[in-house]
Design a binder for these strands. Structure first.
Lengths: 131, 131, 131, 131
DNA sequence: GTGGTCTAGACCACG
DNA sequence: GTGGTCTAGACCACG
């Protein structure tokens, strides 16, 4: 099974797609705290992207406390620790929720349909990941 | 009351913030079909941005069928009509849902908490704004 | 062979002429899905217009699903997908048909002649470009 | 029966809509050579537009040989006389046909569908108008 | 080297 | 007074 998949044709930057894939893998429980991430160069080769792009993605994940650098021995999934305050975390999520709702409603979806869409996507999430 | 607010320092482009503000005002029923939008130059002055930036935001909203241009008399909120196929509308919304969930879960929120956050934001939506 | 040609003196805006040229090249099969478009700055230099003008044309084509942006690697012709409802697509075409007919008839053309003119132009369309 | 109808909310300028309506009335035989047009001020009042707007439309129609000014006694539909060469008339119509086809084809219509749409609109045209 | 965003400012069209 | 288009030029993001 392939762990990460990117779409080079998308308008989402490659490094952000990689970040998203790592977050997604953790959210879905395919990666757990302590698990090693693919090496920077290995993943770069596999995805056929520049290794700087992978490095950039990993370093942002480190900055956000999602993964940890094991100096010289690669990266692992961080044990969950909250580096952001509750307020900050809520702010970050709300910053994504609001535009989603505004777009959906003005596209003609009803509130119920929006909720349904979110719910359906949430079923893909592993319950274990929230540990 | 101020209708639109933007954050100049944000990584979200100014014109996109304006688009979101307009969509939000409509979704929340603060603006209804037929209501005039602030004039391009007037809003530009108020937000302290270039008029081209406001013009860009407005013209994208026109292309999405959300507002209408009234030659020489400015812009108004369009009456609701669906111009995109169901597939396209779903594609657009899903593109916003997935990263939201990945971010939220890896920040430590449970699926239930995510749903709650979405639900709370949805209560701000006007009943009139939908279909 | 020159791919795109514009008429600077025309009353049709430059960015709209560029849009039409791209659409024409696709309709006639001179550009196929996956083919790269000229770079924004390159085309701007060739047509002796500002790069913003080309960027505006390209971004509207993206919004119409006709071309795609490939981050850092420029634009390509999109594979065909329909994003607009049948109603919207008809509305757009009809908006162009009516004035054409009124102009043609009052210029002295008979309905048959108008049809002939349209038919002749349609022979330039590539069979591959449809459906 | 109302002779002319305009849509103030459209993005087509009012004076151009009036031109189009007059041309349409002639094309459909509701107005014939020698028939008087509504007075500038009368039509302005009826359409609730500035009389300068109507005057501008009429003067462009005069320039194109479609109507004639009867100094002080208003305007009448001109007897058909060709003020443009065959080449020029073809150039004008083709300038409208090409973008129509390019738009239609890249929106996903087949050449046959385009032809059909044009044909359907042409059925509204009176045969007498081509005299 | 690719595109994306933004500003400052001009000039024009419409009404 | 309203918006539409365009240029010149800057600065940044991505790879």
């Amino acid at each position: 099974m392939v762990l990460f998949q990117i779409t080079p044709g998308s308008d989402v930057p490659l490094f952000r797609q990689i970040i998203d894939q790592v977050r997604g893998a953790i959210a879905q429980g395919r990666l757990s705290p302590g698990d090693p991430l693919p090496s920077v160069r290995g993943l770069a080769a596999e995805l056929v992207v520049n290794h700087n792009t992978v490095a950039k993605a990993y370093s942002q994940l480190v900055r956000d406390g999602v993964v940890e650098s094991q100096q010289g021995r690669g990266y692992i999934v961080a044990s969950r620790r909250e580096i952001y305050t509750k307020t900050e975390r809520k702010r970050r999520v709300t910053a994504l929720v609001t535009p989603l709702i505004n777009e959906a409603i003005t596209l003609g979806f009803s509130p119920e349909e929006v909720l349904e869409l979110v719910q359906r996507e949430l079923t893909k999430v592993s319950v274990d990941s929230k540990g």
